[in-house]
């Protein structure tokens, strides 16, 4: 485990090397919070609630979901793995005694930790400056499943994106596929709009999809909009998918790498 802790530390150190980038990360986190505040203020003009949310509940949901979205760097994994395979540089990960899935997951976690620091700070400052009355739940039965679902969700998405990335061993070019799946995932995670605004038939299907429980369910739990029972159901679905995805990603890597020629690189 120490080796993965060092990978995490390396990733975190890489985030704070470039000062301009650090400043821009802080600015982007603040800009996201301000943009959300403006958009939802306009939508709520003359209305008491939208889709069962009050304005404060919606803004709290938006801030939590945007924080969760900003710390999910799993989409970098598929892009990075794909690039490394195509350029022949993935071999560096094959000859070192570290599981590549673990390596990329902890690199991603290091980035998440850095962005979490700034996103939470920026969101808190913006909420204070704009007088948003954040409405968090105090119900421990909702907070606990949410607290487990957040790292579990990041683990799931890391494994899923790694699996997509290693498909490059077989297909060599997966750029368009990556773009399409990122767009679909951005929607079904609920980071664009709360999924409760969708028709109930769609929601019933989405409950069994893991991506729904990566951002949407934890955000709904923390804002008190989802029940503890829904939280436990989401946790079970996410855990089941994660338990399947990790070995699937590992198996796919081991299977496809053996067929890879690496000709000319």
């Amino acid at each position: 485990m120490k080796k993965y802790a060092e990978v995490f530390r390396v990733s975190f150190k890489m985030q704070i090397v470039w000062r301009f980038d650090v400043v821009m990360t802080m600015a982007a986190a603040a800009a996201r919070a301000i943009a959300g505040w403006i958009v939802w203020r306009v939508i709520f003009l003359g209305k008491e609630s939208v889709g069962g949310f009050t304005q404060d509940a919606m803004l709290t949901y938006y801030l939590i979901s945007s924080i969760l979205r900003s710390i999910d760097f799993s989409h970098h994994i598929s892009g990075e793995v794909s690039y490394l395979i195509r350029s022949g540089r993935f071999s560096g990960h094959m000859v070192t005694p570290v599981n590549p899935l673990g390596f990329f997951s902890f690199m991603s976690a290091g980035m998440s930790a850095f962005h979490l620091l700034f996103s939470v700070t920026a969101a808190a400052l913006c909420a204070f400056a704009m007088g948003i009355n954040l409405s968090f739940t105090r119900d421990i039965a909702r907070i606990l499943p949410a607290a487990v679902m957040i790292p579990l969700g990041l683990t799931f998405t890391a494994s899923f994106q790694y699996l997509i990335g290693v498909a490059t061993f077989k297909f060599l070019e997966i750029g368009f596929f990556m773009y399409v799946q990122w767009s679909i995932i951005a929607f079904v995670t609920g980071s664009m709009v709360p999924l409760s605004l969708l028709p109930s038939a769609v929601l019933a299907v989405l409950r069994f999809i893991p991506f729904t429980h990566v951002i949407y369910t934890p955000a709904m739990l923390l804002t008190g909009q989802a029940s503890a029972r829904e939280g436990l159901f989401g946790l079970a679905v996410l855990a089941a998918w994660t338990l399947m995805m990790m070995p699937a990603a590992h198996y796919t890597y081991n299977r496809l790498r053996k067929k890879y020629d690496g000709v000319g690189i």
Binding site: K2, K3, E6
Partner: peptide, 9 residues
């Protein structure tokens, strides 16, 4: 070097 120290134990 520190990373490799941990990776190779």
């Amino acid at each position: 070097f520190l990373l490799y120290k941990e990776m190779y134990e």
